[in-house]
């Protein structure tokens, strides 16, 4: 039984997004889209979270913050980059203060494109991430499976 992917807890962090994707992530919680039907709960605590949803690109200031949040999350964990800024830096990629997409700091499992990403595609991305989460959990139990947090092999790239 897939106990983990039936009730994944989600942590949302706004890296340097314009808010567009953030409010679409929040809109997923509202009655029209209602991700709670998948057992998904939005938490504010990295220690409780299985899925890290990041919107916006990495900038010089939040580099360490994102790294810290990722490191605090227990294994197994998956990262979903929501919106084109989180994938590549988007329209802001040339700005001096932007480092790039999320994947230059931490491994990303699912990329959700769009500006702003639509709630449907965000839900699709998260549901896909749950399969990866389940696979990671299985691998963890086996000898020679993927190591603990922070190892680059954690990302399905």
């Amino acid at each position: 039984m897939s106990y983990l992917s039936r009730s994944p807890w989600l942590l949302h962090y706004d890296a340097s997004s314009c808010n567009g994707c953030d409010i679409e992530v929040l809109a997923c919680l509202s009655p029209l889209y209602d991700v709670e039907r998948f057992g998904i709960i939005n938490t504010g605590n990295p220690k409780h979270a299985d899925v890290l949803v990041i919107t916006g690109g990495i900038n010089e200031q939040n580099r360490q913050v994102v790294r810290n949040i990722y490191d605090q999350m227990p294994d197994p964990k998956v990262v979903v980059a929501v919106g084109i800024c989180a994938c590549t830096g988007g329209v802001f990629r040339e700005c001096y203060n932007v480092v790039g997409g999320i994947d230059c700091i931490i491994p990303v499992d699912v990329y959700v494109p769009g500006c702003a990403a639509r709630p449907e595609s965000i839900i699709d991305g998260i549901v896909r991430a749950l399969d990866i989460l389940e696979a990671k959990k299985e691998r963890m139990g086996k000898p020679g499976g993927t190591g603990p947090a922070g190892s680059p092999a954690g990302g399905a790239q």
Binding site: D14, S16, S17, G57, N59, V65, F92, C95, N97, V98
Partner: peptide
């Protein structure tokens, strides 16, 4: 934390 410098 969200400064991008988009005015430039």
């Amino acid at each position: 934390y969200i400064h991008r410098g988009l005015e430039t």
